[in-house]
Design a protein around this nucleic acid. Structure first.
Lengths: 150, 150
DNA sequence: TATTATTGTGGGTAGATGTGGGGAGAAATC
DNA sequence: GATTTCTCCCCACATCTACCCACAATAATA
């Protein structure tokens, strides 16, 4: 069983657009992926998602089962793939963030890194705040549904 | 089966924000988790909750199965995990408390540690007192409902 | 009560971690 | 092929973490 990511911390992009991945998350990678590689992609919410490469590969494997004969499937796979990029940490544990992705999440210098189970979310602080505030609170129905699972 | 936590005791944060976990609770950890690791998170009440890491991991493992294509699932996972942090006891049995969490529970120096079944509650003394006083007393209806379970 | 063992608290310090920047080599462009 | 841009190594260093040791406080035992 892989230990789940948890926690939140604030980091800074340096002049070269490098982002330091907290050591605790890097360490959890080593068990399954000695390469310290993440796949960073645009999130469904206005943030970036960094999957450990093995997690992303698992997901990609599932996507293969989508039929190529459906136009929407092709569109989804295309969008998903082109927005994903495989990034390896340098010897100091940093990844070099492409400008295109930074722009998407509106990230300038400050980055809030949230450990969310089997992936990391990268947020610009203000975007996160706005997103959380505009979020419709989870209602009783949601938790009723959850209760069916747990 | 893990022995349940029980009891209450008062401890102090030191200058380095370290909190000594009572030996009796630490001991109960060893059975299942030789790492002496807790996951500390914000409570529903204005206190902090410390789960033995194995307890938290079991729940986290279930959460992983929630589909990320549902916005509410993402929101729930985000809120759940950003407030949680994995903390390992040092060789003297202390954990280093992040300021962010201390602020949430209004903890300065004194901490009341309450052992509650499979988790610990960490309270600032005055907050606990206020909370208990403002608490609506448990009524007969509540116990009637409980009777359905026991 | 006296003695011993365990636990809780304080603080110094080596090593780990995060951040910045120079520069060699690779890759892209002209 | 020459020039520019980019990537990633290296080193530097400030900060943080978690070890170690010391010893006080408490509990357990004779």
């Amino acid at each position: 069983m892989i230990t789940s990511f948890a926690g939140e911390s604030k980091h800074f992009l340096d002049e070269k657009s490098r982002l330091s991945i907290p050591a605790k998350y890097r360490r959890w990678l080593t068990e399954e992926d000695a390469e310290y590689t993440f796949v960073v992609t645009k999130g469904a919410d206005p943030c970036l998602i960094a999957y450990p490469a093995v997690e992303w590969d698992t997901f990609a494997e599932k996507l293969r089962n989508l039929s190529q004969f459906k136009k929407k499937n092709r569109a989804f796979i295309r969008t998903w793939s082109r927005n994903s990029i495989r990034l390896k940490c340098d010897k100091q544990g940093r990844i070099l963030m492409p400008q295109r992705l930074l722009d998407f999440a509106n990230i300038k210098k400050e980055v809030v890194i949230i450990g969310a189970l089997n992936y990391l979310e990268l947020w610009e602080q203000e975007m996160l705040k706005e997103h959380q505030e505009s979020q419709i609170p989870l209602d009783d129905d949601y938790f009723e549904d959850l209760a069916d699972i747990f």
